[in-house]
Structure formats: structure tokens, C-alpha cells
Amino acid sequence: MTDDTLTDHEPTETDPTTRRSTVREEYGSIANTGGDCCGTGDDCCGTDEIGTEADGTAADRARSIGYDAADLADAPDDANLGLGCGNPVAISNLEAGESVLDLGSGGGFDCFLAAREVGPEGRAIGVDMTPEMIETARTNARESDLENVEFRLGEIEHLPVADERVDTIISNCVVNLSPEKPRVLAEAFRVLRPGGRLAISDLVATEPLPDKVREDPEAVAACVGGAATVDEMERWLDDAGFVDVSLTIEGEWTDDLPIVSARIEARKPDE
């Protein structure tokens, strides 16, 4: 391939920059309207499997994927946008005084829950690439009673966090949206302290997806088109340097695609 070929390359729908723009636009619309995933009015991210509760409010959807009444009461009303596929805070084993980072924090729901878990001596940081989501989260923070939570604008492939600054990383149905997942995991490894933990909820594919799904911007923004396979995710975590990798499938996510919800855990080695 020549330099001229690279120079003449035109962005396509599968180009990483184009994919990020599509996702940013979709989730900016959600932040502005408080609507469902991708502004479709349908269940978020194709969540057919979670039952009739998912057809209700964001609170109904949150309860159907593992949150309880106390979780909903502990976060500002507008923080839960009904966009998750699990409850990463519940699997993170947070301790008082820790620093926790949420990749793709949206309206801040999981960040607020994490901030209460780590207490006033700890800190919760949310990173999101969508300005509208950051503004929503910051508004929620100002209206909350929490002083140990903050939200930063940035891409999860280029985290606005210094090396070895956080104890735990959480994320909820966001890594699948990235067109550069190995880089996301490498960045997560970079900002974790030695011995730090990764605890994320996400969607993965149990077998490779058809090209027509992977190349469909709407399917990507709806959390399914960009789902990595189980083998890919485990390999990328290993390549990034993580140990004690565990990927636990929690349930089917759609009727017509091999997509499942998963609990993904790993640890950065001690020094």
C-alpha cells in the first residue's frame, strides 16, 4: 500500500472516526431527550430478553438487570437513563477510600452508586465522550449531596487520567461501542494501580457476527454490532497485561443474534 493510497482514503461507515461520531450523535440525543437507547423508543440496546419490565421506565429496566430500590434511591433521578446491561458496581467489591473510574459514564448513574460505596475519603470519576452526557452528569452531581464524584469529557481510548491513579474500573455496556477495544483495555491497564481491578458489564458475541451487522452503524450504536467475541475479549485482556481474567455469561440478549450479557473481571498484577 502506498502513501498516496493512505492519503486518498475516504472515511466509511466502518471507519473508527465515523463510528465514534455516530455513537456520539445518538447518545447526545438520548441525553437531550431522556429517551431510550438510540432515540428509537424501543428497549435499550435490543434488550429483548429481559422481559416485559423492560418495556416500562428506565427504573424498570434498571431493576431487570440487577439494580434494587436502594440503588435507584441513592442516585439522582435523572442519572439513570436505562442504558445498561448489568450492574458493574455490584461486582466491583469497592472499598472505602478507593478511587473508581467509570468508562462511558453517561448520566452518571453507576458513578453515583460507586461514590457512595467508596465514601467521602474515596473518589469516583466518570469519563464520557459525549458533551451532552457530561453536562447531564455534572448537573446531576450539582443537585446531589455527593462531593467525591466528578465527570471528565474524553474518549475511553484516550483516557484523561494519569498513570496508575485508580483502584477499580467499572463500565456498563460501553466497551462494545468502541471501534478500538484493545486500546480501551490498554488504557484501562495504564490508569490502574498495581493490583487494581477491572469489573465491567458488557455485551459479547458467542460466535462471529455477520458483516452486515458489524457494518451497520445503527446496530453498533444499539450496542450489538460492535460486540467482541468471547475469545477476542479474553485475548485482548491478556494482551493488555491483565491476569485473573474471568468472563461470565449472564444471559441471552437478543433472539436473533448470538449476543449475550457478560460479567467481565480482571486484575492488574501487583508490582
Rank of each mutant, 00 (worst) to 15 (best):
119 G>R: 00
195 G>D: 14
257 L>T: 13
172 N>W: 06
32 N>C: 08
225 G>L: 03
86 G>A: 10
219 A>E: 15
260 V>E: 14
72 L>T: 15
119 G>T: 11
6 L>N: 12
149 V>P: 01
27 Y>Q: 10
182 P>S: 07
118 V>S: 02
253 W>C: 10
180 E>D: 15
255 D>Q: 10
147 E>S: 15
214 R>Y: 06
228 A>Y: 01
28 G>N: 12
229 T>W: 01
72 L>D: 12
206 T>G: 08
42 D>F: 06
88 P>F: 07
206 T>V: 13
56 G>S: 08
131 P>S: 09
6 L>R: 15
131 P>V: 05
200 I>Y: 02
120 P>L: 10
10 E>R: 15
120 P>F: 05
149 V>F: 00
105 S>M: 04
34 G>K: 07
67 Y>K: 05
149 V>R: 00
210 P>T: 00
12 T>H: 03
98 E>T: 09
18 T>F: 08
83 L>I: 14
128 D>R: 04
92 S>Y: 02
50 I>M: 10
244 D>Q: 10
111 C>L: 06
201 S>F: 04
59 A>W: 01
40 T>C: 03
83 L>Y: 00
94 L>S: 11
148 N>L: 04
265 E>D: 08
268 K>I: 04
230 V>P: 02
124 A>N: 10
132 E>K: 07
116 R>C: 01
267 R>W: 03
94 L>V: 11
232 E>Q: 12
13 E>H: 13
266 A>S: 08
210 P>E: 14
85 C>A: 15
62 A>G: 10
216 D>L: 04
241 G>D: 13
180 E>T: 14
129 M>C: 06
